[in-house]
Structure formats: C-alpha cells, structure tokens
C-alpha cells in the first residue's frame, strides 16, 4: 500500500517538476551563466568577464535610480491598495445600500489584464483630451495640458495610481472575507458599551483582521515584484529611465541596449533581492502560524 502511494506521488509530481525544471530552473541557471559574460543577446561569441558586470552595476547611476523606484513602487503597492481596500471593505461592510453592486464594481479592475488597465489610464492621462486634464480644465476654467506620463517627475506616480486602482479590488475582497469572520456579537457588545467606531476599528476589527491582512500584504508584495506589464505599457520605464524599476531596467539593458550579460547580472541581483524578501516573509508567516496555533 505504502509503495503504491509512493509510486503515484512520483508519477503525479514528475510532470510539474519537469516543466518547472525546464522553464524555471534551467533559464535561471542560464541567467547566472550569462551574468559573467559580455554576450550581446544573439551573436555566437561571448567572452567570460568574471564579476565585471556586478562591479559595474554598483557604480551605475541608472541602477541606483531603478532601486529607488522599485522601493517607491513596493511601498506604494503596500500602502495604497491595502489602505484603500481596507477602507472600502469597512464601508461596504457597514450595511451601506447597494453594497453588492459596489463590491462588483470595485472588484472589476482586477479581472482586466494589466495591458487593458494600462491603456485605459494612458487615455485618462492623455494631455490633450484625457479625462483627467479635461476635468482639471473644466474645473479651473483654463486649458491644462500637463503630460503626466511624459514628464520625468510624474510618470512613475501616474503608473502607481493606475496599478493601485487595479489592485484595490483584490485587497477589498480579502478584507471583506476577513470581516465576515469577526463575530457580530462582539461588535454589538462594543456598541452597547458605547465604544466609538474608530476605537472598535483599532481595538477589535484590525487585530481580528490580522490573518486577512497577512494575506493581503503578501499578495501585494508578490504582485508588486511582478509589476512589469503595466509599467511596460504605460511608460516603458521612461521618460529617460525616470520610471525604471529593476525589472524594467533589466529588460532595457538586455534587449534594447544589447547587453544581455549585464542585463543577466541585474536579473541575478533582482533574484537575490526577491529571494530575501520572500525568505523574510515566510519566516514571519511561520511565526504568525505558531501564534495562531
């Protein structure tokens, strides 16, 4: 019996492991190999350059710029969708009329592909006839033609707004599910005792939402690390690298500047950073599990 189970375990695990090995582990190992070469991406010749690419990374101002932008991106991805999602969840859970309809509306953007969301926001931010500038012009009575996505000062933040708009729905739904798990009689008892709503939030709701919060934050971090497509569509890291994140920077160096070796070195650094974040996260998660057990 035992050996039979073991047989099926291996049979069922083999295909996904093969695919994982072929499409994840192999390319990963390859990118480590390229990172110590000066390969341009398609020619037959490439020379071993040791750690030159890595040395160059740490003196490259564009790398520092990409690190800073990635940090801003991740911080914003944590604060904006999580905060807005929580606020919406509390609002919709408070018995407001039409909550079901609003839930669907707020959740809808997450069902759209990032490319579609990016395109919608390109139109909103369009300087001549976009929704935002048209609204500002109408409100102020003066023609307003600021190019949000084409100016180095605002491009990254404009994409963050679009990204948050899409991600808020996901956070909201998870918080709503968490809210249903909070016993109603607890909140009713607090009401009877005359506890103000903001105090209920701080002392009852938020602590009891902790499992949902852990999930939301984890998803936000993971999604923000994956956030490449919407940036690619909306700014492509531009103008002039002002909205480059690490992933975008890696893509640019590899495929636009024909420095696959250097790009691979950036990807190795990105891999180490991601691994560290995930390691810390799992450690924290394990601690949390122990508390709840």
């Amino acid at each position: 019996m035992e050996s039979h189970v073991r047989f099926w375990r291996v049979v069922l695990l083999a295909p996904p492991l093969l695919v994982f090995g072929l499409f994840v582990l192999w390319p990963l190992a390859d990118s480590f190999r390229y990172s110590v070469s000066n390969w341009n991406g398609f020619s037959a010749d490439a020379a071993f350059v040791g750690l030159d690419n890595f040395r160059k990374i740490f003196t490259d101002p564009l790398f520092a710029n990409a690190i800073l932008n990635s940090a801003i991106w991740m911080a914003a991805a944590l604060v904006l969708p999580v905060g807005a999602g929580l606020a919406l969840a509390l609002l919709l859970d408070s018995g407001v009329r039409g909550a079901g309809v609003f839930k669907s509306i707020f959740y809808l953007p997450i069902c759209l592909s990032s490319v579609v969301v990016g395109q919608i926001w390109i139109w909103i931010f369009q300087p001549d006839w976009g929704l935002l500038n048209t609204a500002i012009s109408a409100a102020s009575g003066e023609t307003f033609g600021y190019a949000w996505l084409a100016k180095p000062g605002t491009a990254l933040y404009a994409v963050i707004v679009a990204w948050s708009w899409q991600q808020t729905g996901l956070a909201m739904v998870i918080f709503l599910a968490g809210l249903t798990a909070i016993p109603r009689d607890l909140l009713e008892a607090a009401d009877v005792d005359g506890v103000a709503y903001h105090k209920q939030i701080a002392h009852i709701i938020l602590p009891m939402l902790r499992p949902a919060t852990v999930v939301v934050i984890a998803l936000s971090v993971i999604n923000s690390l994956k956030g490449f497509d919407i940036l690619y569509i909306m700014t492509g890291g531009g103008p002039f690298n002002s909205s480059d994140t690490l992933a975008m920077f890696m893509y640019d160096e590899s495929f636009k500047k024909y420095k696959m070796g250097y790009g691979s070195a950036i990807s190795v650094v990105l891999f180490v950073i991601t691994l560290t974040i995930i390691f810390v996260y799992f450690k924290e998660l394990k601690k949390m599990d122990e508390i709840y057990e």
Partner: peptide, 14 residues
Amino acid sequence: HYIKRALLAAAIAL
C-alpha cells in the same frame, strides 16, 4: 524501481 516506472509513466503522459 518505482522512480523508473514513474518516469516512464510521466514520459507517456507528456
């Protein structure tokens, strides 16, 4: 022996 059988089955399943 089992790994061999499993790999064989996986190869067919691909």
